[in-house]
Amino acid sequence: MENYLNIYCIPVTVALAIVLIWMLKGVIYRTLYSRFSAWLLNKLTGALDTTFMSHKKRLFKIVLDYKNRQNRDLKILELGVGAAPNLKYVPDNSEITLLDPNPYFTKHAEENVIEAKKRLKSVEWVQGVAENIPSQSNTFDIVFCTLVLCTVVDVKKCLSEVHRVLKPGGMFLFIEHVAAEKNTWKRFLQTFMDPVHYVLFDKCSVHRETESFIRASSLKDIEIERFQSELFSWIDPSIAGTATK
Score class of each variant (00 low, 15 high):
residue 21 I to P: 10
residue 66 Y to N: 09
residue 60 F to Q: 03
residue 187 R to M: 08
residue 182 K to G: 12
residue 3 N to R: 11
residue 87 L to M: 07
residue 195 P to W: 07
residue 174 F to W: 04
residue 232 F to L: 14
residue 187 R to S: 07
residue 152 V to S: 00
residue 3 N to F: 12
residue 188 F to S: 13
residue 238 S to H: 06
residue 86 N to C: 09
residue 14 V to Q: 08
residue 87 L to G: 02
residue 190 Q to A: 03
residue 96 I to K: 02
residue 113 V to K: 06
residue 224 I to H: 06
residue 2 E to D: 12
residue 25 K to L: 11
residue 225 E to A: 08
residue 226 R to L: 11
residue 78 E to I: 01
residue 7 I to P: 07
residue 235 I to F: 01
residue 224 I to T: 12
residue 146 T to K: 08
residue 193 M to F: 13
residue 58 R to T: 10
residue 54 S to V: 10
residue 243 A to I: 01
residue 154 D to T: 05
residue 71 N to M: 15
residue 34 S to D: 13
residue 240 A to Y: 02
residue 169 G to M: 06
residue 184 T to L: 05
residue 191 T to F: 10
residue 240 A to I: 01
residue 72 R to S: 10
residue 148 V to Q: 00
residue 212 S to D: 11
residue 124 E to Q: 11
residue 175 I to C: 02
residue 203 K to G: 05
residue 17 A to L: 15
residue 6 N to F: 15
residue 211 E to F: 06
residue 83 A to H: 02
residue 85 P to K: 02
residue 207 H to Q: 14
residue 153 V to D: 15
residue 168 P to W: 09
residue 4 Y to N: 12
residue 10 I to H: 05
residue 37 S to F: 09
residue 107 K to T: 15
residue 241 G to Y: 01
residue 176 E to M: 03
residue 62 I to M: 14
residue 201 F to C: 10
residue 144 F to R: 00
residue 113 V to T: 08
residue 72 R to C: 13
residue 124 E to Y: 02
residue 53 M to A: 15
residue 24 L to D: 12
residue 116 A to W: 00
residue 181 E to Q: 13
residue 112 N to D: 03
residue 165 V to C: 04
residue 28 I to A: 10
residue 166 L to H: 03
residue 68 N to K: 15
residue 211 E to C: 08
residue 103 P to Y: 07
residue 193 M to V: 09
residue 175 I to W: 00
residue 37 S to L: 09
residue 198 Y to G: 14
residue 222 I to A: 07
residue 201 F to N: 07
residue 39 W to T: 10
residue 26 G to V: 08
residue 183 N to M: 15
residue 182 K to W: 07
residue 13 T to N: 08
residue 228 Q to K: 14
residue 147 L to P: 01
residue 16 L to C: 13
residue 76 I to R: 01
residue 169 G to P: 05
residue 144 F to E: 00
residue 83 A to K: 03
residue 178 V to I: 14
residue 41 L to C: 08
residue 16 L to T: 07
residue 159 L to K: 03
residue 59 L to R: 01
residue 33 Y to R: 10
residue 171 M to Q: 14
residue 69 R to N: 11
residue 196 V to E: 06
residue 91 P to A: 03
residue 199 V to D: 08
residue 161 E to W: 03
residue 108 H to V: 08
residue 141 D to S: 06
residue 176 E to I: 01
residue 239 I to L: 04
residue 18 I to Q: 06
residue 227 F to S: 06
residue 36 F to Y: 15
residue 126 V to N: 00
residue 213 F to V: 07
residue 103 P to L: 08
residue 74 L to C: 04
residue 19 V to W: 11
residue 70 Q to R: 14
residue 203 K to C: 11
residue 31 T to M: 14
residue 6 N to M: 14
residue 154 D to H: 04
residue 134 P to W: 11
residue 50 T to I: 14
residue 55 H to W: 09
residue 111 E to H: 15
residue 203 K to H: 12
residue 232 F to N: 04
residue 190 Q to W: 00
residue 152 V to P: 00
residue 51 T to F: 06
residue 55 H to T: 09
residue 73 D to W: 01
residue 14 V to M: 13
residue 100 D to C: 00
residue 132 N to E: 14
residue 37 S to D: 13
residue 185 W to G: 09
residue 125 W to R: 08
residue 130 A to T: 04
residue 215 R to C: 10
residue 4 Y to D: 13
residue 18 I to V: 15
residue 207 H to A: 13
